[in-house]
Design a protein around this nucleic acid. Structure first.
Lengths: 351, 351
DNA sequence: AAGTCTTCTCGAATCGATTCGATCGATTCG
DNA sequence: CGAATCGATCGAATCGATTCGAGAAGACTT
């Protein structure tokens, strides 16, 4: 305790512990990691020395340099946290992902798209990266990651070379819902889509916007709707929330209103229903509404949304499994998930 | 030349780039970081060499070792992600935190309490840690962090030495709400509390459980209620959600029911209201309900909860600011936030 | 007693970059 | 014209640990 009074204000390192214990640094390392044959007596001496020096164990920074692994997986979401976490889908997915990664001892580093002022995607010590519903603008970042040899998994994103895809049948699923409406006799159908641009601008759904959009999921679902209703139009929401659905709904239902609405998320769908309620339009009698995701929303009662139930947790879990495999040197196959069409009480025959 | 020989399957490093560019590693480093005087010509040569070698820039792992900083801040939440993110409070707080840290270029690493199978709190290369509503069981982990010289900020946690506290007036706020009920003439009042143990067990609120509890926020709020109603009892929920509130409410309202309920979160409060609806008990006529948090909940209409509005985003932001200051070598002062009592339409005079 | 194994420990190289002080040439000042 | 100055570049030490091959000491066989 009195050994080195004040001439060593520096934090102890493994070498100091080893010196105090009278062993070499290599032996001390072995004693801590337990990765080699060390006599009990020696280990005890090392541990005692560590305690005396108030040494908290090997420095993770040094370990990650030496081992070439940091135990950290980056998750890039396109929105601000507040936006992204508003939708239960994202949370469910993140939960599956965290669960799978957690058991592998990997931590989750939250990142946002470059340029949003957050931590730079390229300077974080990550072992792998998950892209969640990200725009295609990430191309350059992905390239940078590849130069580093960091594997990339993308959930619902445009296919990119050397990026493992975890997909959802967005197009087919939406087409199924659209066909359902068609069979119910609806022909004046409108869309409420998720944001099409990184700016999250509201507004009418135009061909130009679709063409210029970087939002993969959104576009796929539009395609699905158009497989059935080729000229379907609608409005673009600024996010996935009930409020946005409400705003979109008010606009859609103001004049010359459709008999059915395809919303690209359950939250949006609920918002549209709220707008209908405001205007005295009955759902499903006067207006049919379908959603997407299949989340249970508090306060949706008495409505049971007609929607597409997607396996959100499973998607995240699959991404986690893929990452663990990739880090182990394997080459997992891409996965595609399918949504299940669930008929609720928000769609009915057109009148 | 011998550049593209196949005997080098290894990833290029700064030294290789420097060699190809015909400069020393130190100069190459300067060229990348821009932290020193380097001629334009040299920088260009280095960059060209990097491109030719497909070098993606300095390795973050090595940088963090050398600099002693990784740019990562750990966030420890007591629950599983799915649990924690269910409550809008946590998300709001996280948003404030992420916002503040993001502008400082710091990333957010999601961690769970030790023992929950997640990544070990002690092996992640973090510069600082935020504890969010964590139990006091973290003592040992906190000690370990301190040995490493990692500053710790705790949001609503029992005070610990060398841990910067960001607090909320949980006790006083709850007392204010309780007094409100008292003034309305209520005397048979019951509590619905947040979980008291890490196991998240439901059940009756007993003295033993309170005494053995590790949940700081929950206990503080109980104290506040008891400042007004010394012998108040109630039930413990297994989490902060409408479903849990519903379960708790059913139990509380089954027999010998109280005339008012103090729920420890808005979600729980809404659940209690739902339970009352089920049983044909009118709120606020037959039952007064107060919540805590002041979040806008979808589907709460027509109820306007009487609740305590807490500055969640600000709490997170304050933690972020504190961390940035701590990392800059400063010593920020602890902060205490106060909640604002907001009277809605869920409380009324006792009959 | 010589020889073969084990078991434990050590030395030295390595991971990839940063940074401080020194050097060297060229320009400028007195 | 010699000296002081300045900009650009380099060398070498350093951050803190891991790992592999080698060596030493003891246990066991024959």
């Amino acid at each position: 305790m009195e050994d080195r009074a004040s001439d060593k204000p520096t934090r102890p390192n493994l070498a100091a512990v080893a010196a105090l214990a009278g062993v070499s640094p290599s032996t001390a390392s072995l004693a801590f990691s337990g990765a080699g044959p060390v006599s009990d007596a020696t280990r005890a001496r090392v541990l005692a020395a560590a305690e005396q020096l108030n040494y908290g164990g090997p420095d993770p920074r040094a370990q990650s340099l030496r081992r070439g692994r940091s135990g950290i997986v980056g998750v890039v979401m396109e929105d601000r946290l507040r936006e992204a976490f508003r939708d239960p889908m994202n949370i469910a997915m993140l939960d599956g992902l965290a669960d799978e990664l957690g058991t592998a001892g990997l931590g989750l580093l939250l990142l946002t798209e470059p340029g949003s002022g957050g931590p730079e995607l390229s300077v974080a010590p990550m072992d792998a990266v998950v892209l969640v519903g990200c725009s295609t603008q990430l191309d350059k970042s992905v390239v940078a990651l590849h130069q580093r040899g960091i594997p990339v998994v993308a959930i619902e994103a445009e296919h990119m070379p050397d990026v493992l895809s975890i997909d959802l049948d967005n197009r087919d699923a939406t087409a199924t819902a659209a066909r359902h409406l068609q069979q119910l006799g609806h022909s004046r159908v409108a869309l409420v889509t998720l944001p099409l641009e990184p700016t999250h601008a509201r507004g009418e759904l135009t061909e130009e916007r679709i063409a210029g959009s970087t939002a993969f999921t959104s576009k796929e679902r539009i395609r699905g709707a158009r497989d059935v209703f080729p000229s379907i139009g609608g409005v673009v929401a600024a996010g996935s929330s009930v409020e946005e659905g409400l705003i979109a709904g008010r606009e859609l239902l103001a004049a010359d209103r459709p008999t059915a609405v395809i919303a690209q998320s359950d939250l949006l769908a609920l918002g549209v229903i709220r707008a209908a309620e405001e205007l005295g339009i009955r759902v499903p009698d006067d207006l049919s509404v379908v959603g997407f995701d299949g989340v249970r929303i508090e306060g949706a009662a008495p409505y049971e949304l007609t929607t597409l139930v997607q396996p959100a947790v499973e998607k995240g879990r699959a991404a986690g499994v893929a990452i663990v495999e990739l880090l182990a040197g394997g080459s997992p196959a891409p996965r595609g998930f399918t949504s299940e069409f669930r008929v609720g009480n928000t769609t009915a025959a057109a009148r």
